[in-house]
Design a protein around this nucleic acid. Structure first.
Length: 640
RNA sequence: GCCGAUGUAGCUCAAGGGUAGAGCAGCGGUCUUGUAAACCGCAGGUUGGGGGUUCGAUUCCCCCCGUCGGCUCCA
């Protein structure tokens, strides 16, 4: 009689007789664990609780606390939602319904759009299903049997999916209640596990993500094993809305986008512009320190240069139509800066001794983005890329890649970002350039990633056609990731523009070229920054750093002198001597999130001081002006 | 671009087949103030734009534009 030996995450090994199920093992570890167990994992593969453990190995019980556990939980929730939809709306066809990072969705094909009333009805039906608490049952059958079964049921999307599974393989189906779905599994043991859930939204989604296919209706939802967790999640969503950069942009008077001027075209108001200037100043200073050379280049160029670069071929969809001049010459507004930087490179014969050359520019670019994708400052049509192009020798490649990557992380950290999604994108199916160069460049990026040692993921085949890249993404208020940093090798343009340098042997050699943006675009980065700080900018970024508020008009003169002293000390200070109550003016300074208030009345006038109030910490008491200015001098500078 | 929702004063929102109302902000006054909203008054809108139905449309219908949530794409 063979024994099954299971090694738990804590290193303990438990032995069981053959035929034991995951549920049994969980129960033997503890009743509490058994109650919250969602599935189990054996050597990294997830199994249903009800399945017999097939062999010995590394074992763990999955709960909602594990990512895999959440995933299974949400996936099961999607099944329940689909069953509810089919009960209420017979004839609806089901497509796919996976778990996502935050919750789950299911795509349906139904002629009538789902209304909000429908959502409520679906939720009610789901409650019934959960109450019935039926088990999820797995069955396996041959691919063709599955095809036949779904054909009979008229589930054309399932037929298509099953049809792609290699002939002769078995496929697994899961049934719970009256709904059977093609599914790899595993699932929660039964529907009653889904204690709390909510349907969040309806959206259109193309079948398999392609515009050529039919648009389906996607229902999004979220679910939890406890009601309190759902409430907390909804509360968090509400709070996130308060940090939305579009909302704060209006409230703090940072920027606007005018319908009359055009969608996706940004107007930076003075408050936003001050912050942008601070970012730009810091950016320029850091780039000088890192050995970059500034350049300025025009935002339009002749058609010829875009033909040479290849943009008219591969980037045409995102470019505005040409301007035609009297001579019949066509000019294009630029979507990228690279051809101009290359043009500067080509003005001289470059020696290996000159390399690396790093040209940087805050370059304005205009890209046509389809109307449906525009999103506040996070996706716009006119933006400023914090761009640079590095030309280097093969020997310099690893140091350059590492240098840029570290530079980028330092930059993002200076602005308070601590969590990043880091991705290495490798060669796609369609590509240009020599495989060997691709491999070397990818290796250089990998070495850079390893040297720094932060966790990163591979996006296999996700590189641009012209080169591999590292991307860094940060999250917005509601958890969506937005790309900021991108570091991309380019094997296309150096070839097309035929750039070279003279190597040690006096021969022409092709430099490696890297495009990189650290912040991404000032617009997007600014949006992320606003959301990151929820508008409560640290002093070095705040548009107004301090406001002087006299208690009454009697102290206006003194307040004015305090204001002047702050201005002299290079502090962005304002003076609020309006004939409003002190409470009113303090409240206004608080809602506009000014980091510091200097309140001055009789006591302060006499002692040449001010009562300091901080937006973050409230009343700090009276201090001499010297003390306050010293304190400000410590806080008003960028980190490091 | 596609699917769905949505658009009322500077902002946040109400009402609704008989040409719209509040709070805040603005303006004028009174008050002269000690750590998150003093009081009184005034003004503010061709209800996103265009067309249709109707005696009458801001309300109902159609088209367009913008916005929001997705799909696709990407800084």
């Amino acid at each position: 009689m063979a024994l099954i030996k299971l090694k738990l995450p804590d290193g303990n090994v438990l032995s069981f007789e053959e035929g034991i199920t995951g549920a049994d093992v969980a129960r033997s570890i503890g009743e509490g664990l058994a109650r919250v167990a969602i599935a189990v994992q054996l050597d990294g593969a997830s199994l249903d609780l009800s399945a017999p453990i097939p062999h010995s190995g590394d074992f763990r019980v999955l709960t909602f606390d594990d990512d895999e556990g959440k995933h299974i939980f949400w996936h099961s929730s999607a099944h329940i939602m689909a069953e509810a939809v089919l009960r209420l709306f017979p004839g609806t066809k089901v497509a796919i319904g996976p778990a996502i990072e935050q919750g789950f969705y299911y795509d349906f094909d139904r002629d009538e759009p789902f209304t909000f009333e429908d959502l409520a009805a679906i939720e009610a039906e789901m409650k019934k299903i959960i109450k019935e608490g039926r088990a999820f049952q797995r069955c396996e059958l041959a691919r063709d049997e599955a095809v036949e079964r779904f054909e009979k049921a008229g589930e054309v999307y399932k037929v298509e999916l099953v049809g792609e599974i290699p002939l002769g393989e078995t496929v697994s189906l899961y049934t719970s209640g009256g709904f059977t779905d093609l599914c790899r599994g595993p699932h929660v043991p039964d529907a009653s596990r889904i204690k709390a859930f909510k349907l969040l939204s309806v959206a259109g989604a193309y079948w398999r993500g392609s515009e050529k296919n039919k648009m389906l209706q996607r229902l999004y939802g979220i679910s939890f094993p406890k009601k309190a967790m759902l409430d907390e999640y909804i509360e968090k969503l509400e709070q996130a809305k308060a940090r939305d950069h579009r909302k704060l942009g209006k409230e703090l008077d940072l920027f606007s986008i005018s319908d009359e001027i055009g969608p996706g075209l940004v107007l930076w108001h003075p408050n936003g512009a001050v912050i942008r200037e601070v970012i730009e100043d810091y950016w320029r200073r850091r780039h000088r320190e890192e050995g970059y050379l500034p350049v300025y280049t025009p935002i339009v160029g002749r058609a010829k240069i875009w033909e040479t670069s290849g943009h008219l071929g591969f980037y045409n969809d995102n470019m505005y139509p040409p301007m035609i001049f009297e001579e019949g010459e066509q000019y294009f507004v630029r979507p990228m800066n690279c051809p101009f930087h290359i043009a500067i490179y080509r003005t001289q014969l470059r020696s290996y001794r000159d390399l690396p050359i790093r040209y940087c520019e805050l370059g304005n670019d205009y890209r046509y983005e389809r109307s449906g994708v525009l999103h506040g400052l996070l996706r716009v049509r006119g933006f400023t890329m914090d761009d640079a192009h590095i030309f280097c020798t093969p020997e310099q490649m690893i140091d350059e890649a590492t240098g840029v990557y570290e530079f980028s992380l330092g930059m993002l950290r200076a602005f308070g970002f601590k969590e990043f999604g880091i991705y290495l994108s490798t060669r796609p199916e369609k590509f240009v350039g020599e495989v060997e160069r691709w491999e070397k460049a990818t290796e250089a990026l990998e070495i850079a990633l390893e040297r720094v040692g932060l966790p990163w993921k591979v996006d296999d085949g996700g590189g641009a056609f012209y080169g591999p890249k590292i991307d860094i993404k940060v999250r917005d208020a509601i958890g969506r990731e937005w790309q900021t940093t991108t570091v991309q090798f380019d094997f296309n343009e150096p070839e097309r523009f035929d750039i070279y340098y003279i190597d040690e042997n006096g021969e022409k050699a092709k430099p490696y070229m890297v495009h990189r943006a650290l912040l991404g675009s000032l617009e997007r980065f600014f949006a992320c920054l606003v959301e990151h700080y929820a508008g409560n900018f640290p002093m070095w970024l705040a548009p107004v750093q301090a406001v002087v508020i006299p208690v009454s008009e009697k102290f206006a003169e003194y307040a004015k002198s305090v204001h002047q002293k702050l201005l002299k000390a290079q502090i962005r200070a304002s003076l609020d001597n309006r004939p409003e109550t002190i409470g009113y003016r303090i409240r206004e300074a608080e809602t506009s999130k000014v980091p510091f208030m200097l309140i001055v009345g009789e006591r302060e006038t006499e002692s040449n001081s001010a009562s300091l109030r901080s937006h973050a910490d409230g009343d700090l008491g009276s201090m001499s002006l010297e003390e306050i200015i010293d304190k400000f001098n410590m806080e008003k500078n960028p980190p490091n």
